[in-house]
Design a protein around this nucleic acid. Structure first.
Lengths: 204, 204
DNA sequence: GTCTATAACGAGATAGAC
DNA sequence: GTCTATCTCGTTATAGAC
């Protein structure tokens, strides 16, 4: 394999993505700059442009990597057999960990800024939410079959509620710097989905 | 009364706030400029600075006005007697109307951008959410006493879930331009809070 | 209250040397 | 792959005339 040049591979590229990702999750895509990343990585802005020619390209790479990592986390949950409520708790923990790092979900942040995103970023963002809902749909179906979950309405309605509630709980908890606020919303959410028989929902 | 001069009163000031509010709700606080507002209002940027000396001051005025208007809407719901589920439906409709105008909740948007907000804006934003949760807490308490609502956990947990779910539902629905996505999450939310006796939840 | 003009700065991006 | 230097533009904000 010869040199690839171009965008997004290699050690430096992933360091750029790491820093940019944190800045976007903390401040938003429109509130960080190449200069911020360059200063933190101790390189010049021009070096960043070598790896990601434009900010839009950097944004695409951020989204793609984040979505892939999240999909991997969902596969990991699926890898070992567990009841649906435990899988949902593990799912909520993915969000909680992000919040504990004082970050918003990357895709939740970009959803707020959606109207300012480049065209290529938009479908990647939407696919993130669709994929999450599809995965949740399978867990919810499992829960109904097992009898561990009991909820009115359709699978997709419940899946959309879960995504909305967890994204919104992160959004609101962050100004207060209060993870407990997130946990309260998550607890209330799963209480409403639990089957009456399984009184005590599984935790963390 | 003599001339007041200064910030935030008068016809022009409210027109500035109207335009800025829509821009913030659509694109975010960090993605609109005085130039945008000036162009739309057909005045110069300097004229805007006469009414709101800095962007941070404009942001404070936006937040204060929005919170006051929202509080007024909650008082209007309280003004006529209704069962708790109807009040919750009316509350969700406040959010839905914002979304139908292709906007995010102003405070949800600013919550995403929280780390970039000026110090004076922050407590106003937090108070918005606290006030909403307090109002919801009273409605939830009413519902429990009436027997129209039935949910596990504390009042404040359920109130935080409602705020989180509705804010998150707006956030995720907007990239899809799909109000039905919001409605699905809201329906699932209220289904989980409804008392078993009241099978069909009230709509719109 | 509104204007023109401009200051002062930071943004994204490019050229070309090394 | 990284640098310095520079370009161009947009941003918030101010000065001073009307």
């Amino acid at each position: 394999m010869g040199k690839r040049a171009q965008s997004g591979n290699g050690e430096t590229s992933s360091q750029i993505l790491d820093i940019a990702e944190r800045l976007v999750q903390s401040r938003g895509f429109n509130a960080f700059s190449y200069a911020d990343v360059a200063a933190e990585l101790h390189v010049s802005k021009a070096a960043l442009h070598y790896h990601f020619a434009s900010k839009a390209e950097l944004g695409e790479a951020l989204l793609t990597r984040y979505a892939a990592r999240f999909a991997g986390a969902l596969s990991a949950i699926d890898a070992e057999p567990a009841a649906a409520p435990q899988k949902l708790a593990a799912y909520a923990n993915l969000y909680r960990e992000v919040l504990e790092n004082q970050r918003m979900c990357l895709c939740g942040m970009l959803a707020a800024e959606y109207q300012t995103l480049s065209e290529p970023m938009r479908p990647i963002l939407m696919a993130f939410f669709s994929d999450n809902e599809a995965w949740l749909g399978r867990v919810l179906e499992q829960g109904r079959e097992e009898g561990t979950l009991d909820f009115a309405g359709s699978i997709s309605t419940a899946a959309r509620l879960i995504v909305a509630a967890l994204e919104g709980a992160m959004l609101v908890a962050r100004p207060f710097g209060d993870v407990a606020r997130f946990q309260a919303a998550a607890a209330g959410l799963f209480a409403g989905l639990a089957s009456p028989s399984s009184a005590g929902a599984p935790d963390t």
